[in-house]
Design a protein around this nucleic acid. Structure first.
Lengths: 230, 230
DNA sequence: TTAATTCTTAAGACTTTCTTAGTGTTTTGC
DNA sequence: GCAAAACACTAAGAAAGTCTTAAGAATTAA
């Protein structure tokens, strides 16, 4: 999966240097040199993460962050500033997700970027290399995109399939609705939606004998859903 | 690995705000409102890092820091004070590990906390490796949100689960009702409520063979509750 | 355009949580 | 040792919260 990172700094040398690291890791990089450019790019493209300087001409990083959040846009935002500019940072909650002091160590930056983006790397770190997952009578063949329950094939729609795959590949682990949303749609949930619940219902209709007493797809009250590990 | 941070400030609003950030990052937070409370908590719990205000009633942060160091206790200590206070140098000479000027930006604070705690973590971000706590016949799997007593699975509600998790993760240690309330609900108990007792009752009903003679969840009269350490 | 899929909404079912009020037990002080 | 006080336990019902379900609107694919 392609992850898009926007790097925004008025120092072109920094932008260039960081881009190299990011591209090296396989990320798609977008570049901006002030807050206004950044906002434009965010409106035009699906950006997953923004690394933004605070001190910039035209529009600073704080203002840009607030504008982006006002528009209900949900990319992750990491702010950065020279350590002596700390006092410039006012206001308690402007909606950034991380902060780094300049000059920063590229390795640490990469570690933080990965840490932030972990929510999108759905099956990445957790997935087993195998193409077939199984738990109890539930089998999912990721190569043929086919799932079977007790040896009977079941047809799932794409979204349903992704949810089942996520839960089955990590059978036993409980995922909150937000987590499921983030990992399946690759977006952050803006407000608590019911859509995941509806999909869960549809899935149960297909894979459970008795949807009221699910054998596979279980709810953990007040927490989330999981596929039972057998 | 669970990292415990103690935040100590007489301004309750600050304590509350910072706790939210810290908990959001997965740290276990303890709260104190003056130096004496801080020292008590440090003696009772394994604290990895203290964020302490300098200006406080009863016992100030400098004195508390010195006392803690005199006792050969080793938590990291970050002091904070309004920028016009020039106690900075003094603070660092008496054994504090970092200093921050108020008002501070939460993102910067988080960056510094992580930086200090890096010695406890593999690389920057805090990665919990162990999801299973155990003591005697009581096992709690934090990934599956499942607890078992003598190999029999037990279903707990979210609040019940949080209480059991808190006590089990610190098995043998006594928590007062107020402590339990603060940690589970993330707020101070306004007036001595009975709600914790009710939850304790419900938990015992589920995890004890004979709730009247609890084997795991014990009361310490006049003090609080604990889970027996075996 | 039609068909399939996905998303939104809202009502109702169900679960959990909190409050109250009363009962039982342990400690304190005389 | 006994009464009073302090603290812990229990039960039941009200309030709050979460999940389920169905139906239809919106979107996407064929």
């Amino acid at each position: 999966m392609e992850l898009n990172i926007l790097i925004c700094d008025d120092d072109k040398e920094i932008v260039r240097a960081i881009s190299i690291y990011l591209e090296n890791e396989g990320y798609q990089v977008f570049k901006a040199y002030d807050g206004i450019e950044a906002i434009e790019l965010v409106q035009e493209h699906v950006i997953h993460l923004i690394i933004m300087d605070i001190m910039m001409p035209k529009m600073d990083g704080i203002t840009a962050t607030m504008k982006i959040r006002q528009d209900n846009m949900i990319p992750l935002i990491m702010l950065s500033a020279k350590s002596e500019d700390h006092d410039k940072i006012l206001g308690l909650n402007i909606g950034a997700d991380d902060y780094m002091a300049k000059p920063f160590n590229p390795l640490e930056l990469m570690a933080r970027v990965k840490s932030q983006l972990r929510r999108y790397t759905t099956f990445g770190s957790l997935e087993v290399s195998n193409h077939v997952f199984q738990t109890g009578g539930l089998t999912i063949d990721d190569e043929q995109k086919v799932i079977s329950v007790d040896h009977a094939e079941v047809h799932l729609t794409p979204v349903q399939y992704k949810i089942v795959k996520l839960l089955t590949a990590n059978a036993g682990r409980v995922f909150t609705i937000e987590e499921i949303y983030e990992k399946v749609w690759n977006e952050r949930a803006v407000n608590p939606e019911n859509t995941v619940a509806v999909h869960i219902r549809k899935i149960r209709e297909k894979i459970e004998i008795n949807p009221k007493e699910p054998k596979y797809l279980k709810v953990v009250w007040g927490v989330g859903y999981k596929i039972e590990k057998y």
